[in-house]
């Protein structure tokens, strides 16, 4: 195949190898194909004539995405069976720096899927996983994690951020990685600042192009798809929208509270 043909293939085909039920609303879709991706980068997953959305891979070999049933796209994705095809373009964006010596990973809800490849790459790390309740857990047997639930139905009763504070009082860490609801990540970042520890957070915004031109994913003057999705403390400090405002599909700026209300 010459270079030109290669370029013109906008979306590559994926074939579903296996589907695993992770919990009552979450499935992992394994693919036959390999995708060369760094932890924190994302792909745009395309269901022809339906929609295209950004996802991080939750497994690399074989490639997989772990998805929560949420809106129309995931509803259609959940209808697919072993052997069915879907398509992707990417990977896009900048991922996590994985050079740290001693790391804490704070994941909230589906954010755990976004840091799974990172956790696998880290030599020494502590993982804190916060969820609403026991039934929201997944990857319990895959990773050794400190589990926190809002209602205490399993693990520590309280927020992941409470657990993080406790941990930092007892031990010194070089870096905190976080992925999950932005309000949680903002708290994690504030804690990191207080303890003067570097932090990297993986942000989420509504995306269209994924390649840094349409401006849909703007967070202040940064583009989440291109400048991120992972941002470090130096950037986060300057991003006034971080932890406060997101942008809807129609481009309107909305508070995170309003955004989450609209989705649940």
């Amino acid at each position: 195949m010459n270079n030109m043909e290669k370029e013109q293939k906008v979306h590559k085909k994926l074939t579903i190898k296996q589907i695993i039920n992770e919990n009552y609303k979450t499935k992992t879709f394994f693919f036959n194909e390999k995708i060369d991706i760094k932890p924190g980068q994302f792909i745009m997953l395309w269901l022809p004539a339906i929609d295209e959305k950004p996802f991080t891979l939750s497994y690399k070999k074989p490639a997989a995405v772990t998805v929560e049933l949420k809106g129309n796209f995931t509803k259609e994705l959940f209808k697919l069976k072993k052997g069915d095809n879907l398509f992707y373009r990417g990977p896009f964006g900048d991922g996590f720096t994985a050079s740290a010596k001693k790391a804490v990973v704070v994941a909230g809800g589906m954010g755990l899927a976004g840091v799974s490849l990172l956790i696998e790459n880290l030599k020494k790390s502590k993982v804190i996983f916060g969820a609403k309740q026991k039934r929201d857990l997944f990857f319990k047997n895959r990773f050794d994690m400190d589990i926190c639930t809002d209602d205490g139905s399993i693990g520590y009763k309280g927020f992941a951020t409470d657990k993080l504070r406790k941990l930092l009082k007892e031990e010194k860490y070089d870096i905190i990685y976080t992925c999950g609801p932005e309000i949680m990540m903002k708290k994690v970042f504030d804690i990191a600042e207080k303890y003067k520890i570097k932090c990297e957070a993986s942000l989420e915004r509504f995306m269209r192009c994924g390649i840094g031109i349409c401006g849909s994913c703007a967070c202040g003057d940064k583009l989440v798809c291109k400048d991120g999705p992972v941002f470090n403390s130096d950037n986060l400090r300057k991003m006034n929208d971080f932890g406060r405002y997101t942008r809807l599909k129609n481009g309107r700026k909305a508070s995170l509270q309003e955004y989450h209300k609209g989705r649940s």
Binding site: M44, W46, E52, R89
Partner: peptide, 10 residues
Amino acid sequence: NNPSVINFGH
């Protein structure tokens, strides 16, 4: 809906 922006090679 997406895809709404793509690079088609040229």
